[in-house]
Amino acid sequence: MDANNNMTINHAEKKRGSWRSSPLLWLIPLIAVLAFVFVYPIFQIVRLSFTDANLIDADFDYTINSYIRLFTLPGFYQMLSTTSFFVFFSVVFQLICGFFISLLIVQGEKFKIKGTVIVRTAVLVAWAVPGVIIGIIWNTMYNETDSGIFNYILSFIGMGPQPFLSDPLLSLLSVTIANIWRGTAFSMILIYAGLQTLPSDVIEAARIDGANAIQRLTRVILPILSPILLINLIIISIDTFNTFDMVMALTGGGPGRSTEVISLSIYNSIFNKFNMGEGTATAVVLLFINVMMTMVYLKVLGRKDK
């Protein structure tokens, strides 16, 4: 009788133990939260993208017209090329500027130059300021009247007022520069953290082996930093693709559609034209681009990491 009891207790304990050792129990809250705030909204967006829903009528039908319209009507390919220009130059220059600023700060700290903390703080401020405010600040600087700061400076060298926000190409360039300024800080923080962890003995060894500064940078520092650079690249790419607030405040997508990036187009479709079907179809395209880019980055750069 006792033996039987012991066996039953052992069996129950084993069962309880297997539950305890399983990570599933701990993951349930996380899965529930993710399903609620991530999976369900994505499902709803994909579902709505196959409808003709709008913000005025409650009724809608299922259709693929939103996608057909999106790919065939004027504006879609311009939006894609505008977004590509904006994302490519923003990401490249945020990465380059962030890298060099952090390198300068590290070198400055090494040589105990005063003011490195001020530089670090000043760059960080750009990251802390909300996008809408950045849009307004840059709008003031790009102002095309006499009160515009850049045009005022340019007037001293006889370059006259430049249409920073009303020329189709110049406005896209202006928005991209503002975004580079905004995003450089984030890259700087990540790369600065990475540079702090560089093993000094490896760099010292390279120096003893006769590697010059450029060789040390390209053959030693960059390979060690590559995991951080990869994460940085993924984050700022997705972030730039999703940029909405700053562009909205700076140009509103204009003139015409010259600065209408994908996320702004989603906003315009849903909240200005009330076209939920088209807006969500554009959102699905944006989601697809983000996922594809992340996979490409992981495949190409992640392989090197291994």
Partner: peptide, 12 residues
């Protein structure tokens, strides 16, 4: 509005 903005900007 987009059309007007494009015309004034010289885009179209």
């Amino acid at each position: 509005q987009t059309a007007l903005s494009d015309v004034i900007a010289g885009n179209k």
